[in-house]
Write a protein that binds this DNA or RNA. Structure first.
Lengths: 132, 132
DNA sequence: TCTTATTTTAGACGCTGTCAAGACTTTTCG
DNA sequence: CGAAAAGTCTTGACAGCGTCTAAAATAAGA
């Protein structure tokens, strides 16, 4: 993966220590952190970073298409660095969210919905992850 | 549809004026109201009803299986009186949520997910509703 | 009626997310 | 260089969502 600084420059975002701390965490993270989790982690690297800066940076990344925002859990939006189309599985016990690659599921029938113009979709599954 | 009072009694919930106001609105409503919308509507019928009572009642209904809770829009959970399995379409312009009946879409491949035990799922689509 | 259990209420609380004002940095350019 | 401008960060305030608690109101039971 390219280094964070060049990614930011490439999008016209000035790389500052605060932003690097945020981006470093959120783009290399395969879990689905909330803004608050990003804040805590960014503070390990840059203890003075403020909540507003974290939100600003996350919103910037979403705006630039470097990060996806998902509203699939209650309480808070989560951020997803996986930019490929994919589905989601949510473990009902742990709350953990897993990506399910796009081609593992086939959804048919959308084109028959005459009243609706579907521009994006995903399957959201809930259940339990098997051990292992 | 059965009247609200007997529905509540049947579930061991004492029908009070406040609860009736909430339930009357939320169970007969095909839109997908947030708790706040339920509060406003319930107050038309029962002006003194408090926020806590609305939340308590909604949670009770969900617990008893009379109402479903959906976290598909940011900002607030919405409540869904449609107890049949179904999918959802969200209009990106208006924010309105539409139910898509279960048999209009076919999802295949879940049974091949060896690591996950899927107990429920739905397709969430976004786009624009065509005029009409 | 007196007692007890259930409900409702108001208000406080914690959390999420946004915003404005001012301080601080980095550019830009004379 | 140095000053102005532009961009960035922080603090603190704010509004909304949802939960909780203590106390008041209501209902139920003996």
């Amino acid at each position: 993966m390219k280094d964070v600084i060049s990614i930011l420059r490439h999008c016209g975002i000035q790389p500052t220590p605060q932003r690097i701390a945020v981006v470093e965490y959120v783009l290399k993270n395969k879990s689905h952190p909330s803004a608050d989790e990003v804040l805590s982690s960014a503070r390990k690297r840059c203890p003075t970073v403020s909540r507003a800066t974290v939100y600003n940076t996350l919103n910037l990344l979403v705006e630039k298409g470097l990060l996806a925002m998902q509203t699939i859990k209650e309480g808070a939006v989560v951020f997803d660095s996986n930019l490929e189309k994919h589905h989601h599985f949510i473990d009902m016990d742990t709350g953990r969210i897993y990506d399910i690659s796009w081609d593992q599921l086939q959804v048919k029938g959308k084109e028959k919905l005459k009243e609706f113009e579907v521009t994006e979709f995903q399957v959201i599954m809930r259940g339990r992850k098997k051990k292992g």
